[in-house]
C-alpha cells in the first residue's frame, strides 16, 4: 500500500479492533482511552500530518527484506519467551502477588472510589501520571516551537477565508448536524471527566473528547471561523494551568505536612482529601490534554492554510 491515506484508514480500523479487544479482556478504561485516542484523535492528527508531507510514499531506498527477517526473528524470540510466563489469569502469577491484592482489597477504604483504575492512576501512582501529563505538555510546546507561524494577515487570510467559504458552502446537512451534536459531545466529555471516579473514564479521555468536539467545529466551519471562537492564547495558558494545577495539589499536600501528592492531608478526613485531590488532578489532566490536542491540530492545519 503506497497511499499513506489508505494506511491511515487501516490504522483507524486497527484502533477500533484493538479497543474491542480491550473490551473483551474487560479492561474498560484502557478501551475507553483507545477509543478516544487511538481511533479518533490520532487518525485526525496523522491525516493532518499527511496533508503536510504529501500523500504518496516515496520509492524504496533500501531492501525491506532484511528488516523483515530481523523482525521475524525478534518476534519469534519474544513469543518463545512468553512460553515461560504463567498462564493468563493464573492465581500465582507474579503480578498478582505484590501490590495488586492491596489495590483490590484496600483501595475502597483508602480512597473511597469504586473505580480501582482511577484510584491507582490518580492516587497510588500519582507520580507516573504527573510524568505523563508533563510529557503531553512538552509535546504541545514542541509542536508550538517547531510549527507555529507568525500571524500573517492580509491577502492570505482573505484567500483562506474564501477557500473555506467555497468548500463549505455546500455542506448544509453536515453543518446542521454538527451544530446539533457539538453540545452533546461537550456534555458527554464533562460526564466522562467527572464520572471517572465511579465508572470508566477520567481526565485523559475527557480531554480528548473535548478536543475532538472543537476539532470537529474547526473542520466543518473552517479554521478562520474557529479561530474567531477559540482564543489560542487562552488554550496555551490552559495547557500550562493544567500541569500547574496538578503540581500545585502536590505542593499543597507538601505544605500540609504530607508527602508530595499525598492527598490524605488535603482535608480533615483522609477519604475526603483523597476524593478532592483526585478530582482536582483529573481536572488538571483534562485541561492539559484538551488544550494540547487543540494546539497541535491548529498548528498542523494552520501551516497547510498558509503555505
Amino acid at each position: 500500500m503506497r497511499d499513506l491515506f489508505a494506511v491511515v484508514m487501516m490504522l483507524g480500523i486497527f484502533g477500533l479492533l484493538s479497543a474491542s479487544f480491550f473490551v473483551v479482556m474487560d479492561a474498560v478504561d484502557v478501551a475507553f482511552t483507545e477509543a478516544s485516542v487511538g481511533a479518533g484523535i490520532s487518525t485526525l492528527l496523522m491525516l493532518t500530518a499527511v496533508t503536510l508531507t504529501g500523500r504518496l510514499e516515496d520509492g524504496e531506498r533500501h531492501r525491506p527484506m532484511w528488516a523483515l527477517v530481523v523482525v521475524f526473528i525478534t518476534g519469534g524470540l519474544l513469543i518463545y519467551g512468553t512460553l515461560d510466563m504463567p498462564y493468563f489469569g493464573s492465581a500465582d502469577a507474579p503480578i498478582h502477588q505484590h501490590v495488586a491484592p492491596r489495590y483490590i482489597h484496600d483501595s475502597m477504604q483508602e480512597t473511597g472510589l469504586p473505580n480501582i483504575v482511577t484510584s491507582v492512576l490518580a492516587s497510588y501512582r500519582g507520580f507516573d501520571t504527573f510524568g505523563e501529563v508533563v510529557v503531553i505538555f512538552t509535546a504541545g510546546m514542541g509542536v508550538l516551537a517547531l510549527l507555529t507561524m507568525g500571524s500573517r494577515t492580509g491577502i492570505h487570510r482573505v484567500m483562506a477565508d474564501s477557500i473555506f467559504y467555497l468548500m463549505h458552502e455546500q455542506h448544509l446537512i453536515l453543518r446542521i448536524l454538527t451544530k446539533i451534536l457539538i453540545p452533546f459531545i461537550l456534555l458527554f466529555a464533562l460526564y466522562v471527566q467527572f464520572h471517572g471516579d465511579f465508572g470508566p473514564g477520567g481526565g485523559f479521555q475527557a480531554g480528548v473528547i473535548f478536543a475532538a468536539a472543537i476539532i470537529l467545529y474547526a473542520m466543518v466551519f473552517g479554521l478562520s471561523t474557529a479561530r474567531r471562537v477559540i482564543n489560542r492564547t487562552f488554550f496555551k495558558l490552559l495547557s500550562a494551568i493544567g500541569v500547574l494545577l496538578y503540581g500545585g495539589v502536590g505542593v499543597v499536600s507538601l505544605l500540609n505536612g504530607g508527602n508530595f501528592l499525598d492527598y490524605n492531608v488535603l482535608a480533615d478526613d483522609p477519604v475526603a482529601g483523597q476524593h478532592l485531590g483526585i478530582l482536582l488532578i483529573e481536572f488538571g489532566v483534562g485541561c492539559t490534554v484538551a488544550s494540547v490536542m487543540v494546539i497541535i491540530f491548529f498548528n498542523f492545519s494552520g501551516r497547510r492554510e498558509f503555505p
Binding site: 491515506f5 477500533l16 475507553f32 477509543a35 485526525l44 451534536l181 459531545i185 458527554f188 468536539a213
Partner: peptide, 21 residues
C-alpha cells in the same frame, strides 16, 4: 459508555477524513 464514545468519535473521524480528502 464506550459505545457512545465510539458513535461520536466515529462520526468525527469520518468527517475529518472527508475534509482532508
Amino acid at each position: 459508555d464506550i459505545a457512545i464514545v465510539y458513535a461520536l468519535i466515529n462520526f468525527i473521524s469520518i468527517i475529518g477524513v472527508l475534509h482532508f480528502s
